[in-house]
Simulated assay, not measured.
Amino acid sequence: MFPVLGLATLLLAACQGGTAKKTQAKIDSTIVTNAESAPDSVQCYQYIKNRDTATLSLKSENNKVTGTLGYNLYEKDKNAGTIAGMVKGDTIIANYTFQSEGKTSVREVAFLKKGNQLAEGFGDVQEINGESKFKDLSKLKFDGSMTFEKIDCK
């Protein structure tokens, strides 16, 4: 009688242990998934090609995005500032307010998310109320000429 009772106890304990592990795995993956989309999480990206560099940090919440952007392009004026805009599907459209040559300017920027990369979009622009805006967002080209790679934030 005791060996049967002992065996039954072992089987019951083994079954409960398996359930606990499955539940823990589900909880852990949920935490990881939610951490990536948490409103306070900041994602950082960097572009490096030859002597050109650019950095981008983004914070997104409810389809709105804010952050910082800076370009240091070889033999061109360095500029840095903030971005604020919207996320539409896999595309970010934002206003980039920056300082260059002692002057504050506003330029519309666009980025297309491709995995862990953001490809900057380019297209024809026009000046509206002192700001540089794209003429037609549907005609932007995300040709990969300036692709930011995801990096750890510093």
Rank of each mutant, 00 (worst) to 15 (best):
Y71V: 00
T53C: 02
Q99K: 11
Y47S: 02
K103Q: 12
V87K: 12
G89E: 07
N50P: 00
K22M: 07
S60G: 08
I48W: 00
T97P: 05
S57Y: 04
N34Y: 07
V65M: 03
L5H: 10
N79W: 03
K22A: 08
L5G: 02
G85E: 02
E36W: 10
L7V: 11
K88A: 07
I27M: 09
S29E: 13
T30N: 13
E61C: 09
F98G: 03
Q99E: 02
G70W: 00
S29I: 11
I27A: 10
T9P: 01
Y71Q: 06
N63F: 11
S57D: 07
I93T: 13
Q46Y: 04
T19Y: 09
V42M: 10
N62E: 08
K21R: 09
I92E: 00
S41K: 15
N34K: 14
T82W: 01
K26E: 11
C44E: 03
Q46R: 14
Q16V: 07
L12V: 10
S41T: 15
E61P: 01
T19C: 08
I27S: 06
L58H: 00
A35L: 14
S60D: 06
A14R: 08
K64W: 11
L10C: 05
K59S: 14
L10R: 11
D90W: 07
T66C: 04
P3F: 05
K21L: 08
K59Y: 02
D90Q: 15
G85T: 04
